[in-house]
Simulated assay, not measured.
Amino acid sequence: MAGAGKVFATLRNHWKKTTFGVCLLSWGGNWLYGKHCDNLLRRAACLEAQVFGNELIPSNMPLKKATVFLNPAACKGKARNLFEKNAAPILHLSGLDVNIVTTDYEGQAKKLMELMENTDLIIIAGGDGTVQEVITGLLRRADEAAFSKIPIGFIPLGKTCTLSHTLYPESVNQVQHITNATLAILKGETGPSMCCRSREK
């Protein structure tokens, strides 16, 4: 009991350090719990994507080609890491033939879209600005009428993505936003509707 009394006395005499230590431990615990929850989300999404990858396709049918326009500058330069940790594994496990096109400067996605060859699926990985660039490039193509029929998916990587919160309001954090959006693409929840809305503006 005497030892316990000394401990309490020490804590009381150094209450500022004690308070700081308790806050630090609490923050660390919450941070670790958040990381654990994020890993569970990633694992669940990968398992779901694996189901698509395990589907049998005829031997004479080529893999479905997906072209990803990735803006690494989104989210203050964190977009590439966010994509590689949360979206890329899901896409690769799904059995898609994924071609990642990384932009190096503002406006490049628009130019690349104008020159892009045929693909089965277009995936925009970035923020609202990246979406605008890709759609603008699509509308400037000579074969825009035919090309706009290609399904378009959006993986939100921007710091504040208005479109992602509109499409996935149930997502509560960034990892869930990204995994939900990527799985939605695999489930066919894509379409040329974004092109139509852009054309109307």
Rank of each mutant, 00 (worst) to 15 (best):
T179Y: 05
E189T: 02
G126H: 06
T166E: 15
V134A: 03
T162N: 14
N173F: 01
L115G: 02
P169R: 09
M113H: 06
A145V: 13
F147E: 13
D128E: 06
I152R: 05
I150A: 07
P151H: 13
L183E: 04
S148K: 15
T179L: 05
I123S: 05
L157I: 01
E114R: 14
N118D: 13
D143F: 06
A146Y: 11
E133F: 08
A184K: 01
Q174M: 15
L138M: 14
K159W: 04
P151T: 06
C161H: 01
I155L: 09
I150W: 12
E144T: 14
I122N: 04
M113F: 07
L183R: 02
V134F: 08
C161T: 12
G137R: 02
E133H: 06
E170D: 15
E189F: 10
G129W: 09
D120L: 04
I152G: 04
P151Q: 11
C161L: 06
I155G: 04
I123L: 12
N173T: 00
G188D: 10
L157Y: 05
I152H: 09
G158R: 00
I135Q: 05
N118M: 03
I135V: 15
G153K: 14
G153Y: 10
D120F: 07
I135A: 08
D128W: 00
L186H: 02
I123F: 03
T166Q: 13
L183H: 02
A142F: 05
L163E: 10
M113S: 06
A125N: 05
T182V: 02
T182M: 00
I135L: 15
E117L: 07
K159R: 09
E114H: 07
L167D: 06
S164D: 11
L138F: 01
L139T: 14
L115C: 04
A125Q: 03
H165E: 09
N180W: 00
T119Y: 11
M113V: 11
I123Y: 04
V134W: 10
I155D: 03
I155F: 07
L138G: 06
A181G: 10
T130N: 06
Y168T: 00
T166C: 13
T166A: 11
C161S: 15
I178Y: 03
I123G: 02
T162Y: 12
S171Y: 01
M113Q: 12
I122E: 02
Q176W: 00
E133L: 05
K111G: 02
S164W: 03
Y168F: 15
A184C: 03
R141F: 12
P169C: 07
D128N: 05
R140W: 07
F147Q: 08
T119Q: 09
K187E: 12
S148C: 14
T136V: 02
K187I: 01
A142H: 13
I185N: 01
T166P: 00
I124T: 09
E117N: 13
L139H: 06
G158W: 00
Q174C: 09
L167E: 10
E133M: 03
K149Q: 15
G129V: 08
I155R: 02
G158P: 01
E114F: 09
S148D: 10
I150P: 10
M116P: 01
L157A: 11
T166F: 10
C161Q: 03
L138Y: 01
A145F: 05
A145Q: 13
P156I: 01
L112D: 15
F154P: 02
L112A: 07
